[in-house]
Simulated scan of single mutants.
Amino acid sequence: MENPSPNIIVTGAARGIGKAIADALIDRGASVVALSSKDGDLGDTDVPARLWAEALEKLGGRVDALINNAGVFEANPLDSGDHDWLAGWDRTMQVNLTASAQLCRLAVLHWQKSGATGRIVNIASRAANRGDSPAHWHYAASKGGMVAMTKTIARAYAAQGIYAFAICPGFTMTGMAEDYLASRGGDKLLADIPLGRVASPEEVAELARFCALEAPPSMTGAVLDINGASYVR
């Protein structure tokens, strides 16, 4: 970006990948609004627009990049009751995909109105490409939707200087991954990662920082894997 002090919004920034991303951007001189669940529940459809407006005000009316990292990873067993299964599906879709779409839409409209360039970085998942466990149909579907949305944004608005990137981590050592590894048998899952370990939040953050600040415009639409070769395309 040409601006020496880019203004960036990061969601899901209380811990793990999101916090690492915010820290990496701040270290590079960016002004960051780091949003977390204490600022509002993205499961509420009214919250994304409010958070955008509040962040925009904090950043003096200019946003240069949006990083959608917030997400939930909640089991939704197939044999749950119909109402419970659908409620689990709907919540994951709202938090992981729809709220991100709402924020992407507001960002694109902001840049179109101002005539400025801008960047979107969506933190998806390896699950978007290879699926997930039987209890996580909804999670894989939400992340697959995020990848498709990112590609659509990139194709639709590249000529306007609006760029979009998706990052697909595999297991990353965050609270969600630790719980999942424990529940599924960590040693067996680690054996599926040729690198022999899960990624660190800092590794994913470095890739997100690059996309938000440095990636060449011709990379728009890229879907970047960071999973220790556990899924290769």
Rank of each mutant, 00 (worst) to 15 (best):
R15C: 09
A154H: 03
A101G: 09
L207P: 00
A20D: 06
P6D: 12
A128N: 04
L42S: 09
I21N: 00
D39K: 10
E214T: 14
A159P: 05
F165P: 02
M1R: 14
A53E: 13
S200F: 03
A75K: 13
A34C: 05
F165C: 10
D84T: 10
L189S: 03
A116E: 06
R15S: 15
A199H: 01
E206Q: 14
A99N: 06
A205P: 01
P169E: 08
V121N: 04
L106P: 00
P194T: 11
D79Q: 12
A14W: 04
Q94D: 11
Q102A: 11
N227K: 06
G60R: 10
P6E: 10
A205W: 01
M1K: 13
G16Y: 03
L213T: 07
D179Q: 13
G170D: 06
M93N: 06
L106F: 08
V108R: 09
D23H: 11
T174Y: 01
A53Q: 15
P134D: 07
A148D: 01
N76C: 13
M93F: 14
D79F: 10
E214I: 09
W111L: 00
A116V: 01
L181R: 07
K19Q: 14
T152E: 12
F171I: 06
M146E: 00
R91K: 14
I9H: 02
G161T: 05
N96H: 11
K113L: 11
V47G: 03
L78Q: 14
D23C: 07
A166D: 10
C211V: 06
G40L: 12
S114F: 04
L190C: 10
A199K: 02
S133T: 15
K143H: 10
H136E: 10
W52Y: 12
A55K: 05
A141G: 07
A154L: 04
M219V: 04
G71T: 04
V223N: 05
P6Q: 12
T174E: 04
S36P: 02
M1D: 13
A177C: 13
I153E: 07
E57R: 08
V147H: 09
A20Q: 03
M176H: 08
G115P: 15
M146Q: 05
Y139Q: 00
S36F: 07
S230H: 09
M93L: 15
A135Q: 13
G170C: 03
S114Q: 14
L78D: 11
H138Q: 11
S5N: 10
A101P: 04
G196R: 13
G186C: 12
E206C: 06
L42N: 08
Y163A: 05
I21F: 04
V63R: 05
A159Y: 02
A199E: 01
C104Y: 04
R91W: 02
L224H: 00
A182C: 10
D41R: 07
R91S: 05
I21K: 00
V204Q: 03
K58C: 07
